[in-house]
Structures are given as C-alpha cells and as structure tokens.
C-alpha cells in the first residue's frame, strides 16, 4: 500500500486532490475557531481575557508534538522501507514542526508574564519543549550539512529517531514532576475538565492547525519534488556539457 505512492506522479495527483480541501478546512475551521475564541467564548473568571492565548498556545503545542511524531514516523519509514517520499515528508515536516514549537514557546511566554509573573521558568514542561525545538534545529542542520543530500537524510533520520525519546518526556513531564505548568485538562481519564464553551474553539483551532499542517506539508513536498527535478536536470546538463567538451577535446587531439 505505501509503495503505491512511491511514484511521485501518483503522489502529486493525490496531493492535488487533497490540497484544496486542506486549505479550505484551514480557512473555515480557523475562521470559526477564531470567532468562537475571540468573541463567543467567555473570559476566564481568574485569568480574564488572557485565557484567549490558550486557543493558539495549546493547539500549537499539540502540533509541535504531533509534527515530531510524524517526523520520526517518516524517518523510520525512510530507513526501514527506503520509501523515497518518506525522506521528502520528513524534510518537509521539520520546519513546520519547528515553527509550531516556537509559536508554542512564544505564546506560552506571553501567557506566562501576566499569569505567573515571569516570561520564563525552568520547569520540566517548558524545558523539555525547548529541547524539542533544539532537536528540530539539530535535525534541520544535520540534514543540510552534507554535499550528498541522501547522506544528510539518512544521518538526520537516525538523529530524529534518537530524539523521539523526548516526546513522551514532554507529554508526561507535567505528571512526573511537580511543575508550574498545569497538567493536561482536555485529553485525560474521566473526560475533559474544561467547559464546552471553551472546548469548542479549542478543538476548532486544533483541527484548523492540523489542516494547515497538511496543506503546508503538501505544498512543501511539492516544492521538494520540484527541487529534485531541477537538480536532476542540472546534473544531466553538466554531464552532457562534459561529454561534448570531452568529445571536442578528443576531436582536436586527433586533428593535431
């Protein structure tokens, strides 16, 4: 099944079909989510209006973890089955994930200032998310550090799999350590501990972010495929030029 889409043309045809839907869902869900988040949901009785930061912060934090999981899965697929599109998917996922991680850190910092009285605390959740950000950066740096792109992909895939150990640590950091960051309140045993009026925009935004991820991922993968094509064409041109110049050299040599 997964090898059906190893063919870039077939993949691009599927991507063409999915992309407009993903884009439309992003706009619709994001618009609805923002409306509910900014206008139609109540302010928190303790946190006041700042609670609205949650509707960006929480979905981007979820996406940060989701993207790294997707990255690790793509890297494992690339290493085990040598699936050609998995490499592309991994390379396209990393910058998106890094952006979501940065967004989660920045919004968290903005939220922390009025609520905790500080931009940053070194508690387990914040620190482990910061490490996640560094792992994304390390992955991207290693990926681009080789003259042979294939080497970079393999090496960085191994790094991504090693770094995956951080994902469960982030998830459970609020349970294992006694931290300032609050524990999970949406996905937990016994149902969400959050009122439906706030849960609705939160989930809408979460799905909007996910649709956005799919949209941008497909766009980036399309770009990667085109870059590969350009690279192949250039290499062919160089080889052709070398062959003709060698022929010309041989011809002049014979003339002498």
């Amino acid at each position: 099944m997964i090898h059906r889409f190893a063919n870039p043309t077939r993949f691009l045809r599927l991507a063409d079909r999915i992309q407009p839907w993903a884009a439309g869902l992003t706009v619709v869900l994001g618009g609805a989510g923002l409306y509910f988040a900014l206008f139609s949901s109540p302010a928190d009785y303790q946190q006041g209006e700042t609670v609205r930061i949650m509707y960006i912060h929480v979905p981007s934090a979820w996406m940060a973890l989701f993207c790294y999981t997707a990255l690790a899965a793509a890297c494992a697929t690339a290493l085990i089955w040598k699936h050609p599109l998995a490499d592309l998917a991994a390379r396209a996922t990393a910058p998106i994930g890094a952006c979501f991680t940065l967004l989660a850190l920045a919004t968290g910092s903005l939220w922390g200032k009025p609520m905790w009285g500080t931009w940053w605390v070194w508690d387990a959740r914040l620190t482990s998310v910061l490490i996640l950000f560094f792992l994304y950066l390390g992955y991207m740096a290693l990926n681009g550090a080789f003259d042979d792109p294939e080497r970079g992909q393999k090496a960085s895939a191994i790094l991504a799999l090693v770094g995956f150990i951080n994902v469960p640590i982030i998830k459970f950091s609020v349970d294992w350590w006694n931290t300032l960051h609050q524990p999970a309140s949406v996905i937990k045993m016994g149902g969400p501990a959050i009122h439906p009026s706030m849960l609705t925009p939160l989930l809408l935004m979460a799905f909007a972010f996910k649709a956005y991820f799919v949209w941008v991922l497909l766009m980036r993968m399309r770009g990667e495929i085109n870059a590969m094509k350009i690279r192949a064409v250039r290499l062919r041109q160089v080889h052709a030029a070398e062959a003709t110049s060698a022929d010309a050299g041989a011809a002049t040599g014979e003339a002498r």
Partner: peptide
C-alpha cells in the same frame, strides 16, 4: 553541528 545535536541529548 555536533554540539547542536549532542548537547540537547
């Protein structure tokens, strides 16, 4: 590159 990769771990 090594420091960027290894220090977080």
């Amino acid at each position: 590159l090594l420091s960027l990769m290894v220090l977080p771990l």
